[in-house]
């Protein structure tokens, strides 16, 4: 499909400016990456409510927790790999456990970080955040959804992780599309297979659905933008109808969206399933698009997986 591309980071900045305007309890923290995460926009507008902690992610999360338990609504940003891995225990002990009102909005997630290579490609961040009690995990599909997700987490009381990309992503929703934390949306209806995905893989699934249609296969595309709490109801309704499922995520298939979906299906409605995502390996340097191909994050991979799970359906 011919896609229009949008920047999730730009929408994050826009949302923060809007929230900052309306709510004086909102403070923003960054760790020397404000020009990349775009919290710099908020910093320019509301300098007294912005704190740069320097290159110190553990300190970032601890400081955020202190502000949060003192009544502030705190946004803390850096790259996804550092926002989750470097300070996981600080998040666990000072944010998740005490239910601190901290919104970790991480950018540069996934393989599409590109040239920086494996050290900077977060392919385990969903897993790390999903494992924590109290933590919500949101992976917006595009710019418009990033904007809505940021506004929504500001309203929610409790820790949230919002995962954004570095590169511009295809626009698959509109400003008017509904967004609610914990609610999946059916972006395209179908009857033969459910394609459940998040982030920019939603666009990849829509492309796959298009090519499956040419083969006479009707695919349903589910935008599971909240990975936790998972919208079990919508998931089960879709899979009960189609009888099989393919998940797709720009993340390791170990413990990401696919695992969350498998966990529900295995216990409540076992169905043929395949997971598209990166295998059990680190990424590498390259152009974003090249890497998406190299790691099988493509419409072809989703389509062939869909055909396979359809074949495996018991009739």
């Amino acid at each position: 499909m011919k896609w229009v591309y949008t920047s999730q980071r730009k929408e994050y900045a826009n949302a923060l400016l809007d929230i900052g305007q309306k709510r004086t309890d909102v403070v923003v923290l960054d760790a020397d990456l404000s020009s990349s995460t775009r919290t710099s926009e908020f910093a320019k507008k509301f300098p007294e409510r912005f704190f740069n902690v320097g290159i110190a992610e553990q300190n970032l999360m601890g400081t955020a927790a202190g502000l949060a338990v003192s009544g502030k609504t705190v946004f803390a940003s850096t790259f996804a790999v550092f926002a989750t891995g470097r300070c996981w225990d600080q998040i666990r002990q000072s944010i998740a456990y005490p239910n601190s009102n901290v919104k970790i909005v991480a950018t540069h997630a996934g393989i599409t970080v590109g040239g920086d290579g494996a050290s900077h490609q977060a392919l385990e961040d969903i897993a790390l955040m999903r494992a924590l009690p109290n933590m919500y995990v949101i992976v917006p599909a595009d710019g418009a959804e990033a904007y809505k997700a940021v506004k929504a987490v500001a309203e929610h009381v409790g820790p949230c992780y919002v995962r954004l990309g570095r590169s511009d992503v295809p626009m698959v929703t509109t400003v008017d599309s509904p967004f609610e934390i914990g609610r999946a949306t059916i972006i395209r209806e179908g009857t033969d297979v459910s394609l459940v995905s998040c982030g920019q893989m939603v666009a990849v699934c829509l492309d796959a659905a298009e090519s499956l249609q040419v083969k006479g296969i009707s695919a349903e595309v589910v935008n599971m933008s909240t990975v936790k709490p998972l919208d079990v109801e919508t998931l089960l309704r879709s899979v009960r109808k189609t009888g099989c499922v393919v998940t797709a995520e720009e993340h390791s298939i170990r413990s990401g969206l696919g695992s969350a979906v498998a966990c529900v299906l295995a216990q409540q409605y076992p169905a043929p399933m395949k997971m598209v995502g990166t295998p059990d390996c680190f990424g590498e340097s390259g152009e974003s698009a090249e890497l998406m191909c190299r790691y099988g994050l493509t419409a072809e991979e989703v389509s062939s997986s869909a055909e396979e799970v359809i074949r495996r359906k018991r009739t």
Binding site: I55, V81, R86, G115, G117, H120, E284, S285
Partner: peptide, 28 residues
């Protein structure tokens, strides 16, 4: 440097580049 398949990754990788003693990139 930084090209797909190159042993010269964006950040030093011990498993790919001769002479690199330890992978780094995450500061500190």
């Amino acid at each position: 440097l930084r090209k797909l398949g190159s042993y010269l990754q964006g950040h030093p990788c011990r498993m790919k580049t001769p002479g690199v003693e330890i992978s780094t990139g995450s500061l500190g």
